[in-house]
């Protein structure tokens, strides 16, 4: 009986030692701090990708999709039954160009100009241009401003709040079918970027 009591006391004393520790000088420090991150759709994130034409849209998963087929929810045939079989895609062996298919904008919070690079996974099928001539070919001095000058790897600068409409040149292959490719968008603070856009090699 006495022994149990003594053990109980010991437990209490250890607890008190802990409490004393908090008022002692620095020994050990351990804190948990919280972080909260919202994953949002491409058209409302820090570096916005916004559809600027019916060919581009934000899908239910929040991703920008550019779709030149009847799978596109904006395809008029979904609304109008008479539209069926018309304008379901691109013709083989033809070239199309669309100004301002999607916009890239600088919505970062810290008021910094950014360098943006846009890369096509298949430059033979999709390349980029800007009729306003604010784009450069990455690693060169060329200005892709129309169908003939379009490039599969382009760059441009965006001041805070600024946006640029990316035009797309599409070269359809000579066989029918669906073709999927990926557009990669990269961005850096302009003053800390790995290359200078329009600065040659």
């Amino acid at each position: 009986m006495k022994k149990i009591l003594a053990l109980g006391m010991l437990g209490l004393l250890v607890a008190m030692a802990f409490a004393l520790g908090t008022s002692a000088t620095f020994r050990d420090y351990r804190v948990q701090r919280s972080s909260h991150i919202a994953i949002v759709a491409d058209d409302s994130e820090l570096i916005d990708l916004t559809p600027a034409q019916p060919y581009a849209y934000i899908n239910e998963r929040g991703k920008l999709v550019i779709d030149f087929s009847s799978d596109n929810p904006n395809w008029p045939g979904h609304e109008d039954a008479n539209w069926t079989n018309r304008g379901m895609g691109l013709s083989p062996q033809s070239r199309y160009n669309f100004d301002h298919v999607f916009n890239v904008s600088n919505d970062l919070w810290e008021n910094k100009t950014i360098l943006v690079e846009v890369i096509s996974s298949d430059p033979g099928k999709v390349s980029f241009y800007d009729p306003e001539e604010n784009m450069r070919i990455t690693g060169g001095n060329g200005t892709p401003y129309n169908s003939d000058t379009a490039s599969g790897d382009v760059c441009f600068y965006l001041a805070p709040g600024e946006e640029l409409g990316v035009g797309m040149e599409l070269a359809a292959p000579n066989t029918l079918g669906d073709y999927n490719l990926t557009i990669t968008v990269k961005a850096w603070p302009a003053d800390d970027a790995p290359f200078v856009c329009g600065g040659g090699i």
Binding site: R33, S35, H36, A38, I39, V40, E45, D48, K63, W109
Partner: peptide, 27 residues
């Protein structure tokens, strides 16, 4: 009084645009 990392429109620093991070992206 405590450090908090917040990249959402709930942050007091939220400037009214850029509500968060996009999917399938590395920041």
């Amino acid at each position: 009084g405590f450090l908090k990392v917040d990249i959402s429109n709930e942050s007091p620093m939220y400037p009214g645009f850029g509500k968060g991070l996009g999917k399938d992206t590395v920041y």
